[in-house]
Design a protein around this nucleic acid. Structure first.
Lengths: 408, 408
DNA sequence: ATCCGCCTTGTGAATTTACACAAAGCGGAT
DNA sequence: ATCCGCTTTGTGTAAATTCACAAGGCGGAT
């Protein structure tokens, strides 16, 4: 066998075929992973294998603690930087035998890794060269698969976006299209918006999406990426909404720990069963999100549209107010006075109302003597011509103040 | 002058000409009135005249007290019933000299009256016959004038309706059209709806309109008649709104006294200067009217859109609620309890909130012991899971209850 | 009849709140 | 500096509100 024909100079029908070919040539177990250490393929007739490999194959991903270890030890970095296969010494503590790894790269991007278990140090120069060639072959295949996936993803984006914007004109149309795309739509769903504090670049997006997929046990999730937002169609069939949302919040926190990305806001619309209602759920989620922007204190601990309470009427009210701007005479007088004397009568009033008109409580919140508050209230009633024993007036003031707060 | 040619067998160029002709033949002063005793024409070269005639000519209408007297005495009735001229004896107390009157009738309708002052009893059979002929001539002329006025009225209806529905597409278009129709639009205006408790039939309509015109010193007023409503464009240039509305309320009461028609509701939109905004003012007036229908107690003493306070947001809120029906869990529990035990917890809560959460006041309004109310409140908080010391919750309940009240 | 849950009313004590008044700080105007 | 208006804080009292508890009425179920 002096004449060594390149066994990787052909078109492989699948990544598995590449793994098997490498394994056959090197007589070692082989696994191929993507850049996120998800299992893409593994050789089948492996003679012996180690615990890490078994766990990887079972979990369809390299176990978390192993990944952490490899990152900590700088091994991943080493593989990423090296143009040639890297030898890795065994790490007994995690059950990792000796192996050789090579990155599958395309320009400067890492598409994945090929791992070869090298129990018996049976790999020579020729073997390493073959491994390099294998890496190139894998690259072509991966790119091919990737573009396929991209195309399918794009179709799914388009589909979901169509649902979100209400441009799909009938229920069965939606169902048919989902079927075409191989997407199983949940019986009952909500639209959720996840907003981050930074732009969702390619890498971040991949990571976030991966976290979500993992949490959802790798069931496909319809989603669309926006500037700083990710729109997701979440399953609401089991009506354990609180638990569900709690899980998402946890997920977000985990994301923060891992990638340093903080999803600043979670907002979800109502749950519906008709797919034509995705628009509605989306609009509701947007409403919640806006509410969180404008009234952060009031909405700190809520995420779902149904938790908005009376605040859900605010947008409609504000629209009405904008259509017919009329100033609340009492409030405008108070505002004028505040401006003139730099006194916080309006804010005092606001907090007083917030505190259920309880003088003692409000005074404590303001860190002032209750008589001071009493004095201010007297000024407020005098200047504003307000009767604080009149529910109608208080409601009017409360709503008006909330709208002001929204608009400022 | 044995050959007596009929001097009324010709086409008169105006009603004045008829009056003059009669006057000339009979040698007496003559006035012609419409069915509402408004002056239509009077002879010019009258030799002598009485105080009533002078007042009529000056005021362009027979003085009120004279009309009342004539009705009371049954004289008007007599004239209306008689096919021939009626002789009326002088009534010194009101300064009415002896005169002869004949109705101008068309089928069974009375179009107006011809009055001839007959100081010297100088009218013979021939004169009475001439008077009858004059009445026929006046009929033709009046019908002619009436159809003209009708046509002009109809055009004005159409014009105003166009403004109300917003089908006029530009400001100068409106101004031009008004000019064409000889209508002077007020600099600033409001749309007002007057709703009656009965259908506005022809007669009623005439009467109401007449009352309004009288009150407006006979300046033309744009208006449209609907089933039970009259839509009016009222002048809001002088900003004495309260006095204005007060005047209208008085007017309505007067109407009630006179014709037994009760305008049940007055509702006015905001005042605007741009004529394109008539639509808005009309919509606002409708909103006020609806509010009065649905929340009569709350809106008993208000008529203008700007007086609605926070209630102006209710329609928008209700629309929102209808779009996404979600029940308030506390309230639905209370409602369920009420149904089960026929207890009025919800209404108690409603009144309690209305009374600014003042136990004493609310108990008095309910005619119950304050401890009874305390007990009920405890039940309400227990069953509904409500914290009545939380402004947010109270606002939510208050708004929800108002909406319920609207919809019921 | 008797029981039981639900509701209403009454009583009195504990607590809270409203209000009047005094004292004093602060900033601007004279 | 002095005055003045506005504001804050403290004190004490009168008024009110809240709350627990007792007593009794009412209607349905056993």
């Amino acid at each position: 066998m002096n004449v060594h024909l390149d066994p990787f100079d052909r078109d492989f029908e699948s990544i598995e075929a590449i793994a098997d070919t490498i394994s056959q040539i090197l007589q070692c177990p082989v696994t191929i992973e993507d850049s996120n250490h998800r299992l893409l393929a593994y050789s089948t007739h492996a003679p012996d294998t180690d615990p890490v490999r078994i766990a990887t194959i079972i979990g369809r991903r390299v176990p978390e603690h192993v990944i952490s270890m490899l990152w900590r030890e700088g091994i991943i970095q080493q593989i990423m930087d090296s143009q040639v296969p890297v030898l890795i010494d065994p790490i007994d503590s995690i059950g990792l035998n000796r192996r050789i790894a090579v990155a599958i790269r395309h320009h400067h991007d890492i598409l994945g890794y090929i791992w070869v278990m090298d129990e018996h140090k049976g790999i020579d120069e020729q073997g390493l060269d073959d491994l390099n060639k294998a890496s190139h072959a894998a690259r072509s295949k991966l790119l091919q698969v990737q573009t396929q996936r991209r195309r399918r993803e794009e179709q799914s984006f388009e589909f979901f976006w169509g649902m979100l914007t209400g441009s799909m004109d009938s229920e069965h149309r939606i169902v048919d299209r989902a079927h075409q795309l191989g997407i199983t739509l949940p019986k009952s769903y909500r639209v959720m918006i996840i907003e981050f504090d930074t732009l969702l670049n390619e890498k971040l997006y991949e990571q976030v999406l991966y976290t979500i997929l993992t949490a959802q046990r790798h069931r496909k999730v319809l989603h669309v990426r926006q500037e700083q937002r990710l729109l997701v169609l979440i399953d609401a069939t089991d009506d354990d909404i609180d638990g569900h949302i709690a899980a998402w919040i946890l997920l977000m926190e985990r994301m923060q720990q891992r990638f340093g990305v903080k999803p600043v806001h979670l907002a979800s619309g109502l749950s519906y069963s008709l797919y034509m209602d995705v628009v509605k759920s989306y609009q509701e989620a947007i409403t919640v999100m806006n509410m969180k922007k404008h009234l952060p204190d009031e909405t700190k601990h809520l995420h779902r549209y149904e938790e908005l309470g009376w605040y859900r009427f605010l947008p409609a009210m504000i629209q009405e107010r904008r259509a017919r701007p009329m100033q609340h005479s009492s409030l405008s007088r108070l505002k004028a006075y505040d401006k003139e004397h730099q006194s916080g009568l309006v804010s005092t009033l606001s907090l007083f109302l917030q505190a259920d008109c309880n003088v003692k409580r409000a005074a404590e919140m303001l860190h002032i003597h209750s008589n001071t508050l009493m004095y201010r209230l007297k000024r407020i009633t005098d200047i504003g011509g307000i009767d604080l024993n009149d529910m109608e007036q208080k409601i009017s003031l409360y709503l008006e103040l909330k709208m002001d707060q929204w608009q400022s």
